[in-house]
Design a protein around this nucleic acid. Structure first.
Lengths: 207, 207, 207, 207
DNA sequence: GATGAATGAGGTTTCATTCAT
DNA sequence: AATGAATGAAACCTCATTCAT
């Protein structure tokens, strides 16, 4: 389905959908699912309330669509980042940099993302959690395979659990980003990815 | 305020308060702040609705009290853990072990804790976040000072940012605990604290 | 206005109108006025919503037109039935038979008709009721005049209130048809009109 | 459960329930289920909207309770009427009189009753119809058994279908009452029950 | 002091109707 | 002339909170 094949009408609809989702993202990320009313979203998006229900069956549906679509885009960018080089260390550097950039330019999304992926999400009765975790596990396995191949290629020391390493790296990134989100000046996100990677690269214990 | 000074009446009130908080913890951790009604809490605690409002000004207040008190206890236990030994490595080991034990025996609290500390908390209009983060930063500094003293005592290599290391260690622990929470069998929490600490102790790069 | 004078355009419009009414009849009779939306009718009739409003001012108008037109046809057939013979008993027989046939082959209409004529119709703010009752009274008078003429012609015993008799006969027919509608197998509508008429023809009391 | 055993609180609740039902009956019978809002009922009953939902789960539930309870009372009175005498003709006379009186003093109920029992009720998704028809069939059988016993006791001529006779008598009563409801002056309900019964008692055909 | 009945603001959602294309 | 996207009033219902008993 090429872009050119979309009729004007279809393009218009798509644009409206994006506007609704953008308004919803702003509000949800600022106040949380339960503190935002459909009226508020409609108001911010400058549509009548009924119009929202033409695009989304209900509030839950709108929220799910928002989170899933944003995560989709985010995941794709992350996958691209780790596939941009053949060198394992370079893959990790790219990942750290790209995640940082991406987060810092998508603040509203980040708040939602962390709320959904770390914090227990009580917003939606079922399904979103599982879907998101499934994706996260998938991505962690990609990350783990970088460590594996790095070990095979003798770039890294042999390590028993590459998956744990992936979990660790990812969580550390999120932690730094969360700190930065909370107080950007006090906790600047490092320009140089090695600042973070060195935590893993350089052993702490004096030998 | 010594225990002996509490009248029977006062002790009774304290016990009732605990019962309310216990019921609230169960419900909030299972369904989330917005999906639990004051009626439900009253029902589970076997008090009348009005009684809840004798103890807490409103729903928000009850929630705040619950989270803060639980965090208090938790923090005290963690501080004890890292003060139980004089050796820096032993302090870290104790921390990893104790946090794991504590989490695994306090599931309902953990869900709330993670929702509040990682996920952006949208439950409460203001205040809880800040209070909790302040405490968390305080604790992270304690952790950081372990690394500092370890470096001074030549137990650890010199590292530029002990605080970052503290953040990293803590976030990695939480990540493992979150995985374990989601699928305990697939992601067992390691018996031996060194399994986690080695991520930081042993450098990854082949030299 | 003769048929020949209708232009192709006019004939087309009339056909469309009928299609809308047919779709509306199906839906209204199945779910009731308030449980059918204009969208549903438009969908079933395969017209755009706007088109419905070209033919009918609003939902109420559409409903009124539907009921009145159907009743018109029905009334005409009933009048024909009682005028098909000169003999009073035969008139009544024809009436009983024709009403039965007509009902059984127009189920959707019957449900609406009974809802409107027996049940108090709360669908329409005003007007339909009165119009329908006026017609019903007119028809009952026709029926009454059969009894009158039967009495004058000595086919029937003298009876003080032929109108009451008309009411009675009509209501009994409806009652049997309602039973049949509810459970056709348990309450078959009699093939022989005399089964019903005998209730009136043969006195019940032993003399 | 004796009346005396009701606590003051319970009696109060019962009274309130009755007030809500009374307000609802007035409104429903005047405007129909779908044209009455819960707010309206609350306003007329002089309760807050929330209070209505303490007594009834939802609007449907309130309506069902209303119709069923009213029908219960009505049925009991009717059964008493036909059991007040041993003589079959007297039973029928009592029935005709009592139904007339009852209807004429319970106009709002009658409108609802006829709407539900004759007109197809589209108000309630399911259940009310069936429940009411079941009761109506039960009552018609009681009526039929009067004709049966009358035939056995030689008070009535032998008739093949006493059930049909019951249906006929009942529907004729309803028809007269409906006429009276529509235009009391034009269609007075007969004082003397025999006016109606004679339709069945005296054969129409001259022999 | 404890209770829980009563309140009503405010949430989500539907649907008859309009009007620009 | 026909369309159907957009509108927004108004429906049902929940639940935090109060206060008379």
């Amino acid at each position: 389905m090429k872009k050119e094949k979309l009729t004007r009408r279809e393009r218009e609809k798509l644009r409206q959908r994006q506007e609704i989702l953008a308004a919803a993202l702003d509000l949800f990320s600022e106040k949380g699912y339960h503190n935002v009313s459909m009226h508020e979203i409609a108001g911010k998006a400058e549509f009548a309330i009924g119009t929202l229900y033409k695009f989304f069956q209900n509030k839950e549906d709108l929220y799910k669509a928002l989170v899933l679509e944003k995560c989709d885009t985010f995941e794709k960018v992350m996958v691209q980042a780790i596939e941009a080089s053949d060198d394992e260390v370079e893959k990790l550097r790219n990942y750290v940099m790209t995640k940082g950039e991406r987060f810092r330019s998508n603040l509203p999304f980040v708040r939602l993302f962390l709320a959904e992926s770390k914090g227990a999400s009580f917003n939606i009765k079922a399904g979103l959690d599982e879907e998101l975790r499934k994706r996260m596990y998938g991505f962690l396995e990609r990350l783990a395979s970088i460590f594996e191949s790095g070990i095979k290629n003798k770039r890294f020391k042999p390590i028993s659990s590459p998956y744990s390493l992936a979990v660790a790296l990812d969580s550390v990134l999120d932690a730094f980003l969360l700190l930065w989100l909370d107080a950007p000046e006090r906790h600047p996100y490092p320009e140089d990815p090695d600042t973070i990677l060195d935590i893993f690269f350089k052993g702490l214990i004096e030998s």
